[in-house]
Design a protein around this nucleic acid. Sequence first.
DNA 1: GCAAAAGTGTTCCGACTACACCCATGC
DNA 2: GCATGGGTGTAGTCGGAACACTTTTGC
Lengths: 247, 247
Amino acid sequence: MPGRLQRKTISQEAVDLADFKVGVDNVIFSVDTEQNRLLVLLVMRHDCPFAGNWSLPGTLVRRGESLEDAAYRVLSEKIRVNNLYLEQLYTFGGPQRDPREAKDAYDIRYLSVSYFALVRFVEAELIADGVSGIAWYPLSQVPSLAFDHSEILKYGYQRLRNKLEYSPIAFDVLPEVFTLGDLYQLYVTVLGPDFSDYSNFRARLLKLGFLQDTGVKTSRGAGRPASLYRIDAAAFEQLKNKPMVFI
Amino acid sequence: MPGRLQRKTISQEAVDLADFKVGVDNVIFSVDTEQNRLLVLLVMRHDCPFAGNWSLPGTLVRRGESLEDAAYRVLSEKIRVNNLYLEQLYTFGGPQRDPREAKDAYDIRYLSVSYFALVRFVEAELIADGVSGIAWYPLSQVPSLAFDHSEILKYGYQRLRNKLEYSPIAFDVLPEVFTLGDLYQLYVTVLGPDFSDYSNFRARLLKLGFLQDTGVKTSRGAGRPASLYRIDAAAFEQLKNKPMVFI
DNA sequence: GCAAAAGTGTTCCGACTACACCCATGC
DNA sequence: GCATGGGTGTAGTCGGAACACTTTTGC
């Protein structure tokens, strides 16, 4: 009987199961609209392996802690923010991805569940940013990273661009009121300057119907003052789960 | 010095780290174009917990085995197929998702990395499909599943629909040659009959430029014989990584 | 006045929709 | 002939791309 056979096989194989510690690694992006730079948060490793290398901020999951809890914990240990967007990215778990896994088959495997987060640069306050290695790196200047973190970062950047195009994640990261120029800058910084004309971007966003002109103007240096907008929460709620295109 | 303090904290917490076994659970879809049904592969559990319940086919990851290897192993233990599409879905890992995790904090946690697969129904041969519980279930008739598998299935179905709309995964599952009617049926079965007109679907697909009319006709019962098409591998290669819309 | 940034409007064009209609086969 | 499914064509419409142009500020 196949069922019994299968059960027996499985219990025979019980000794062959891998034991894991599970790590959570976060790709934390922030957009510095002042300097037009997309930044990613890196930490310097002090411990082996890869001591002295930059890596994504991560941690190992504790007893009784969910994956998401762990992701939020890493984040809150490194920076203080009010608004953020966070979602699971991918799980990397091949053997030999961590050198701590010896060739010796009886060692413990390390698996990495990666999360991707977007925070606001101006409100993100680094914790313990003394001499000892935690920094925002412009994406173009990221050094080679510990473990397979370069691959994770690449994957996270891809996801960020996709999400920005068809999800309203930008609004999780904008202040209460903002100008359409601010919003446009955010998109330009992430997607590059060629993604869309400002006029067209503006028209498309306004047509979505959840941006509310407060009437208040703000003047930043030269140029005509811009209207401050806010999210119309009611209109936004109805749309936020529907597909949207911001291109 | 913050760095040292942090290191000390981490090593103190080492005893609090959770130990994991890692499971791989597959959401395996197939499209029965004859009967116009979207099917998902379920297996009957014989062991505790949830003995006697249907569940997604899964396994625990073995020493030296990558996550993807494990996913392919599960698949190949249950069905024989030549063509398939497979990708990682999501990782579910809250504590208490598996009743084997006792309230007792010193137990082992079970984490599930889910994969989603699409196979061709006609070529998928079930292995050990005797009395003992492995079956294709029409999506509309799936019973409540073990663990959090109902949630995983829901997530997988969502992903399947999205992927079908903007990725050429359908072609991983079609035979060498096929009619545009076959292709259309596949889309109808997954997305419902209202997704698009046949004429327009046809025009859009042909405009993509990687479908090659072989000139050979096939007649299936009544109606005008249909042309058999094949993928133009060269043209397809250039496009497969670019965004495509099949709506 | 001039540069700079905000905001408005218009024209062009390609793509999708919704059909109507012809073609080839089985019965 | 007629039902059935395959295949082609077209007219209407919507939306995005590109760009010209106006408005309001700082200097």
